[in-house]
Protein backbone atom coordinates (compact mmCIF):
# COMPACT_ATOMS: atom_id res chain seq x y z
CA UNK A 1 0.00 0.00 0.00
CA UNK A 2 1.24 3.42 -0.91
CA UNK A 3 1.82 5.57 2.17
CA UNK A 4 2.11 8.94 0.40
CA UNK A 5 -1.65 9.66 0.06
CA UNK A 6 -2.09 8.94 3.77
CA UNK A 7 0.80 11.24 4.72
CA UNK A 8 -0.67 13.89 2.44
CA UNK A 9 -4.05 13.54 4.09
CA UNK A 10 -2.55 13.96 7.55
CA UNK A 11 -0.75 17.08 6.34
CA UNK A 12 -4.10 18.39 5.09
CA UNK A 13 -5.78 17.60 8.41
CA UNK A 14 -3.07 19.49 10.27
CA UNK A 15 -2.71 22.47 7.95
CA UNK A 16 -6.36 23.14 7.08
CA UNK A 17 -7.03 25.52 10.01
CA UNK A 18 -4.09 27.60 8.84
CA UNK A 19 -5.98 28.81 5.75
CA UNK A 20 -8.49 31.02 7.60
CA UNK A 21 -5.56 32.39 9.60
CA UNK A 22 -3.72 33.39 6.43
CA UNK A 23 -6.87 34.92 4.96
CA UNK A 24 -7.58 36.98 8.06
CA UNK A 25 -3.98 38.10 8.37
CA UNK A 26 -3.93 39.26 4.76
CA UNK A 27 -7.18 41.12 5.24
CA UNK A 28 -5.88 42.78 8.37
CA UNK A 29 -2.69 43.87 6.66
CA UNK A 30 -4.60 45.47 3.80
CA UNK A 31 -6.71 47.34 6.32
CA UNK A 32 -3.54 48.50 8.06
CA UNK A 33 -4.00 46.35 11.15
CA UNK A 34 -1.77 43.68 12.58
CA UNK A 35 -4.58 41.18 12.81
CA UNK A 36 -4.98 37.99 14.79
CA UNK A 37 -2.15 35.45 14.96
CA UNK A 38 -1.84 33.06 12.04
CA UNK A 39 -2.62 30.18 14.37
CA UNK A 40 -5.73 31.79 15.84
CA UNK A 41 -8.07 29.03 14.67
CA UNK A 42 -5.88 26.40 16.34
CA UNK A 43 -6.13 28.34 19.61
CA UNK A 44 -9.90 28.68 19.19
CA UNK A 45 -10.32 24.98 18.50
CA UNK A 46 -8.22 24.06 21.51
CA UNK A 47 -10.27 26.33 23.72
CA UNK A 48 -13.63 25.17 22.37
CA UNK A 49 -12.80 21.50 22.78
CA UNK A 50 -12.15 22.04 26.48
CA UNK A 51 -15.44 23.81 27.11
CA UNK A 52 -18.78 22.48 28.30
CA UNK A 53 -21.91 22.79 26.21
CA UNK A 54 -25.21 24.66 26.26
CA UNK A 55 -28.06 23.19 24.23
CA UNK A 56 -31.30 24.92 23.41
CA UNK A 57 -34.39 23.36 24.95
CA UNK A 58 -36.03 23.40 21.54
CA UNK A 59 -33.41 21.17 19.96
CA UNK A 60 -33.40 17.41 19.49
CA UNK A 61 -30.83 14.80 18.59
CA UNK A 62 -30.73 16.29 15.06
CA UNK A 63 -28.97 19.36 16.45
CA UNK A 64 -26.39 17.23 18.23
CA UNK A 65 -25.83 14.92 15.27
CA UNK A 66 -25.36 17.83 12.84
CA UNK A 67 -21.74 18.73 13.71
CA UNK A 68 -20.69 15.07 13.85
CA UNK A 69 -22.15 14.11 10.47
CA UNK A 70 -21.06 17.42 8.95
CA UNK A 71 -17.42 16.92 9.88
CA UNK A 72 -17.51 13.24 8.92
CA UNK A 73 -18.96 14.13 5.50
CA UNK A 74 -16.25 16.66 4.74
CA UNK A 75 -13.67 14.10 5.86
CA UNK A 76 -15.29 11.72 3.37
CA UNK A 77 -14.67 14.36 0.71
CA UNK A 78 -11.09 14.78 1.92
CA UNK A 79 -10.51 11.05 1.37
CA UNK A 80 -11.26 11.67 -2.32
CA UNK A 81 -9.33 14.93 -2.69
CA UNK A 82 -6.01 14.72 -4.54
CA UNK A 83 -3.07 16.51 -2.93
CA UNK A 84 -2.01 18.67 -5.83
CA UNK A 85 -0.65 16.32 -8.45
CA UNK A 86 -0.63 13.35 -6.11
CA UNK A 87 -3.60 10.98 -5.94
CA UNK A 88 -6.05 10.71 -3.05
CA UNK A 89 -6.41 7.95 -0.47
CA UNK A 90 -9.57 6.68 -2.13
CA UNK A 91 -9.93 7.03 -5.88
CA UNK A 92 -12.33 5.43 -8.33
CA UNK A 93 -14.07 6.33 -11.55
CA UNK A 94 -16.88 8.76 -10.81
CA UNK A 95 -15.59 9.73 -7.37
CA UNK A 96 -16.13 13.38 -8.29
CA UNK A 97 -19.88 12.80 -7.88
CA UNK A 98 -19.38 11.38 -4.41
CA UNK A 99 -17.16 14.36 -3.57
CA UNK A 100 -19.89 16.83 -4.51
CA UNK A 101 -22.52 14.84 -2.64
CA UNK A 102 -20.49 14.53 0.57
CA UNK A 103 -20.42 18.32 0.63
CA UNK A 104 -24.16 18.18 -0.04
CA UNK A 105 -24.64 15.94 3.00
CA UNK A 106 -22.62 18.35 5.12
CA UNK A 107 -24.86 21.20 4.02
CA UNK A 108 -28.04 19.18 4.61
CA UNK A 109 -27.20 18.36 8.23
CA UNK A 110 -26.00 21.92 8.94
CA UNK A 111 -29.28 23.29 7.59
CA UNK A 112 -31.33 20.82 9.62
CA UNK A 113 -29.39 21.60 12.79
CA UNK A 114 -30.12 25.28 12.15
CA UNK A 115 -33.85 24.62 11.68
CA UNK A 116 -33.83 22.52 14.84
CA UNK A 117 -33.29 25.58 17.00
CA UNK A 118 -36.62 27.06 15.92
CA UNK A 119 -34.97 30.44 15.52
CA UNK A 120 -36.27 32.45 12.58
CA UNK A 121 -32.82 33.89 12.29
CA UNK A 122 -31.23 30.55 11.63
CA UNK A 123 -34.09 29.55 9.36
CA UNK A 124 -33.24 32.59 7.27
CA UNK A 125 -29.62 31.52 6.96
CA UNK A 126 -30.66 27.96 6.16
CA UNK A 127 -33.00 29.11 3.41
CA UNK A 128 -30.26 31.15 1.76
CA UNK A 129 -27.72 28.40 2.09
CA UNK A 130 -29.83 25.81 0.30
CA UNK A 131 -30.79 28.24 -2.46
CA UNK A 132 -27.28 29.41 -3.26
CA UNK A 133 -25.81 25.95 -3.13
CA UNK A 134 -28.52 24.57 -5.42
CA UNK A 135 -27.36 27.13 -7.96
CA UNK A 136 -23.67 26.42 -7.37
CA UNK A 137 -23.89 22.65 -7.65
CA UNK A 138 -24.53 22.36 -11.42
CA UNK A 139 -21.72 24.79 -12.18
CA UNK A 140 -19.30 22.86 -10.01
CA UNK A 141 -20.15 19.46 -11.51
CA UNK A 142 -20.21 20.77 -15.08
CA UNK A 143 -16.74 22.23 -14.51
CA UNK A 144 -15.53 18.81 -13.46
CA UNK A 145 -17.25 17.30 -16.48
CA UNK A 146 -15.35 19.71 -18.74
CA UNK A 147 -12.06 18.75 -17.11
CA UNK A 148 -12.96 15.08 -17.44
CA UNK A 149 -13.47 15.57 -21.15
CA UNK A 150 -10.25 17.58 -21.45
CA UNK A 151 -8.14 14.92 -19.69
CA UNK A 152 -10.07 11.79 -20.70
CA UNK A 153 -10.42 10.66 -17.07
CA UNK A 154 -13.30 10.56 -14.59
CA UNK A 155 -11.68 10.32 -11.19
CA UNK A 156 -10.49 13.38 -9.28
CA UNK A 157 -7.17 11.64 -8.71
CA UNK A 158 -6.61 11.12 -12.40
CA UNK A 159 -8.24 14.26 -13.81
CA UNK A 160 -6.38 16.87 -11.80
CA UNK A 161 -2.86 15.38 -12.04
CA UNK A 162 -3.45 15.11 -15.79
CA UNK A 163 -3.91 18.87 -16.10
CA UNK A 164 -0.39 19.78 -17.19
CA UNK A 165 1.29 22.57 -19.09
CA UNK A 166 0.37 20.78 -22.31
CA UNK A 167 -3.32 20.79 -21.35
CA UNK A 168 -3.15 24.48 -20.56
CA UNK A 169 -1.48 25.20 -23.88
CA UNK A 170 -4.11 23.21 -25.74
CA UNK A 171 -7.20 24.60 -24.04
CA UNK A 172 -6.08 27.38 -21.76
CA UNK A 173 -9.10 29.67 -22.17
CA UNK A 174 -11.56 26.94 -21.26
CA UNK A 175 -9.56 25.92 -18.18
CA UNK A 176 -9.29 29.55 -17.12
CA UNK A 177 -13.06 29.93 -17.39
CA UNK A 178 -13.60 26.84 -15.24
CA UNK A 179 -11.07 28.11 -12.71
CA UNK A 180 -12.83 31.47 -12.55
CA UNK A 181 -16.21 29.79 -12.02
CA UNK A 182 -14.78 27.52 -9.35
CA UNK A 183 -13.30 30.51 -7.54
CA UNK A 184 -16.77 32.07 -7.38
CA UNK A 185 -18.24 28.81 -6.13
CA UNK A 186 -15.46 28.42 -3.59
CA UNK A 187 -16.15 31.88 -2.22
CA UNK A 188 -19.90 31.25 -2.11
CA UNK A 189 -19.73 27.78 -0.58
CA UNK A 190 -17.23 28.79 2.07
CA UNK A 191 -19.11 31.85 3.22
CA UNK A 192 -16.55 34.38 2.03
CA UNK A 193 -16.96 37.92 0.72
CA UNK A 194 -18.53 38.88 -1.73
CA UNK A 195 -21.29 36.35 -0.94
CA UNK A 196 -21.22 36.15 2.83
CA UNK A 197 -19.27 37.93 5.54
CA UNK A 198 -17.56 35.55 7.94
CA UNK A 199 -16.84 38.27 10.50
CA UNK A 200 -20.31 38.87 11.78
CA UNK A 201 -23.43 36.89 12.35
CA UNK A 202 -25.76 39.47 13.74
CA UNK A 203 -26.82 41.02 10.50
CA UNK A 204 -29.79 40.05 8.45
CA UNK A 205 -27.56 39.41 5.49
CA UNK A 206 -25.55 36.53 6.85
CA UNK A 207 -25.71 32.94 5.71
CA UNK A 208 -23.32 30.45 7.19
CA UNK A 209 -22.45 32.12 10.47
CA UNK A 210 -26.07 32.61 11.38
CA UNK A 211 -26.81 28.92 10.94
CA UNK A 212 -24.31 27.94 13.62
CA UNK A 213 -25.35 30.65 16.05
CA UNK A 214 -26.62 28.23 18.70
CA UNK A 215 -23.72 25.82 18.61
CA UNK A 216 -21.10 26.10 21.32
CA UNK A 217 -18.28 24.24 22.97
CA UNK A 218 -16.93 21.11 21.27
CA UNK A 219 -19.78 21.24 18.70
CA UNK A 220 -18.69 24.66 17.51
CA UNK A 221 -15.14 23.36 17.42
CA UNK A 222 -16.18 20.53 15.10
CA UNK A 223 -18.06 22.97 12.90
CA UNK A 224 -15.17 25.43 12.63
CA UNK A 225 -12.75 22.64 11.84
CA UNK A 226 -15.18 21.23 9.27
CA UNK A 227 -15.48 24.66 7.64
CA UNK A 228 -11.68 24.93 7.43
CA UNK A 229 -11.50 21.47 5.85
CA UNK A 230 -14.21 22.39 3.35
CA UNK A 231 -12.18 25.42 2.32
CA UNK A 232 -9.18 23.10 2.03
CA UNK A 233 -10.83 20.45 -0.17
CA UNK A 234 -12.43 22.96 -2.54
CA UNK A 235 -9.25 25.04 -2.60
CA UNK A 236 -7.22 21.90 -3.32
CA UNK A 237 -9.21 21.23 -6.51
CA UNK A 238 -8.75 24.81 -7.69
CA UNK A 239 -5.03 24.86 -6.88
CA UNK A 240 -4.47 21.50 -8.59
CA UNK A 241 -6.19 22.86 -11.67
CA UNK A 242 -4.12 26.04 -11.65
CA UNK A 243 -0.67 24.47 -11.09
CA UNK A 244 0.33 22.81 -14.34
CA UNK A 245 3.69 21.68 -12.91
CA UNK A 246 4.30 18.05 -12.11
CA UNK A 247 7.72 16.81 -11.01
CA UNK A 248 6.74 13.26 -10.17
CA UNK A 249 8.69 13.48 -6.92
CA UNK A 250 6.35 13.44 -3.96
CA UNK A 251 7.93 16.13 -1.79
CA UNK A 252 8.48 18.52 -4.69
CA UNK A 253 4.89 18.22 -5.85
CA UNK A 254 3.75 18.63 -2.27
CA UNK A 255 5.75 21.84 -1.89
CA UNK A 256 4.33 23.27 -5.12
CA UNK A 257 0.82 22.39 -3.96
CA UNK A 258 1.25 23.87 -0.49
CA UNK A 259 2.70 27.01 -2.04
CA UNK A 260 -0.37 27.15 -4.25
CA UNK A 261 -2.70 26.81 -1.28
CA UNK A 262 -0.85 29.62 0.49
CA UNK A 263 -1.22 31.86 -2.55
CA UNK A 264 -4.91 30.96 -2.79
CA UNK A 265 -5.45 31.91 0.86
CA UNK A 266 -3.63 35.21 0.34
CA UNK A 267 -5.69 35.73 -2.81
CA UNK A 268 -8.95 35.22 -0.93
CA UNK A 269 -7.69 37.64 1.69
CA UNK A 270 -6.98 40.20 -1.01
CA UNK A 271 -10.44 39.76 -2.50
CA UNK A 272 -12.02 40.18 0.91
CA UNK A 273 -9.91 43.23 1.61
CA UNK A 274 -10.67 44.86 -1.69
CA UNK A 275 -14.38 44.13 -2.08
CA UNK A 276 -17.57 44.76 -0.21
CA UNK A 277 -20.17 42.09 0.19
CA UNK A 278 -22.73 41.98 -2.60
CA UNK A 279 -26.37 42.64 -1.95
CA UNK A 280 -28.08 39.32 -1.39
CA UNK A 281 -30.28 39.72 -4.43
CA UNK A 282 -27.14 39.93 -6.56
CA UNK A 283 -25.72 36.63 -5.34
CA UNK A 284 -27.88 34.43 -7.59
CA UNK A 285 -26.72 36.51 -10.54
CA UNK A 286 -23.11 35.94 -9.54
CA UNK A 287 -23.70 32.19 -9.35
CA UNK A 288 -25.56 32.15 -12.66
CA UNK A 289 -22.58 33.99 -14.05
CA UNK A 290 -20.35 31.17 -12.84
CA UNK A 291 -22.68 28.70 -14.53
CA UNK A 292 -22.47 30.70 -17.75
CA UNK A 293 -18.66 30.66 -17.60
CA UNK A 294 -18.68 26.89 -17.18
CA UNK A 295 -21.13 26.46 -20.04
CA UNK A 296 -18.85 28.54 -22.25
CA UNK A 297 -15.86 26.46 -21.18
CA UNK A 298 -17.76 23.27 -22.03
CA UNK A 299 -18.52 24.59 -25.49
CA UNK A 300 -14.86 25.40 -26.01
CA UNK A 301 -13.77 21.96 -24.81
CA UNK A 302 -16.35 20.01 -26.78
CA UNK A 303 -16.43 22.25 -29.86
Amino acid sequence: MNAIPWINMIVALVLAPLLPGVINRTKARIAGRDGAPLLQLYFDLWKLLRKGAVYSRTTTWVFRAGPLIGLAAVLGALLLTPFGKSGAVLAFDGDLVLFAYWLGLMRFVTVLAALDTGSSFEGMGASREVFFSALAEPAFLLGLLGLARATDAISLSTILPAVTAATWLAMGPALALIAAAWLVILLAENARIPVDDPNTHLELTMIHEVMVLDHGGPDLGLILYGAALKLWVMGALLVSLLTPVRYGVAWQDALVFLGGMLILAVGIGLIEGAMARLRLARVPQLLMGALALVALALMLIMK
Binding site: L49, R50, K51, G52, A53, V54, Y55, S56, R57, T58, T59, A65, L68, I69, L71, A72, A73, L75, G76, W102, T117, G118, S119, L213, D214, G217, P218, D219, L222
Partner: peptide, 27 residues
Amino acid sequence: VAGIVVLLGFIRQRLLKNRPVRQAPTW
Protein backbone atom coordinates in the same frame (compact mmCIF):
# COMPACT_ATOMS: atom_id res chain seq x y z
CA VAL B 1 -17.75 8.25 7.01
CA ALA B 2 -20.13 6.20 9.16
CA GLY B 3 -17.17 5.09 11.26
CA ILE B 4 -15.96 8.67 11.64
CA VAL B 5 -19.41 9.76 12.84
CA VAL B 6 -19.35 7.11 15.56
CA LEU B 7 -15.78 8.01 16.50
CA LEU B 8 -16.54 11.73 16.69
CA GLY B 9 -19.61 11.03 18.78
CA PHE B 10 -17.50 9.00 21.16
CA ILE B 11 -14.86 11.75 21.37
CA ARG B 12 -17.45 14.40 22.07
CA GLN B 13 -18.99 12.27 24.77
CA ARG B 14 -15.59 11.88 26.44
CA LEU B 15 -14.90 15.60 26.15
CA LEU B 16 -18.20 16.56 27.74
CA LYS B 17 -18.04 13.92 30.42
CA ASN B 18 -16.97 16.02 33.37
CA ARG B 19 -18.03 19.37 32.02
CA PRO B 20 -21.21 21.36 32.53
CA VAL B 21 -23.88 20.61 29.88
CA ARG B 22 -26.79 23.00 30.29
CA GLN B 23 -30.18 23.52 28.70
CA ALA B 24 -31.23 27.02 27.77
CA PRO B 25 -33.65 28.78 25.42
CA THR B 26 -32.64 29.30 21.82
CA TRP B 27 -30.63 32.50 21.39
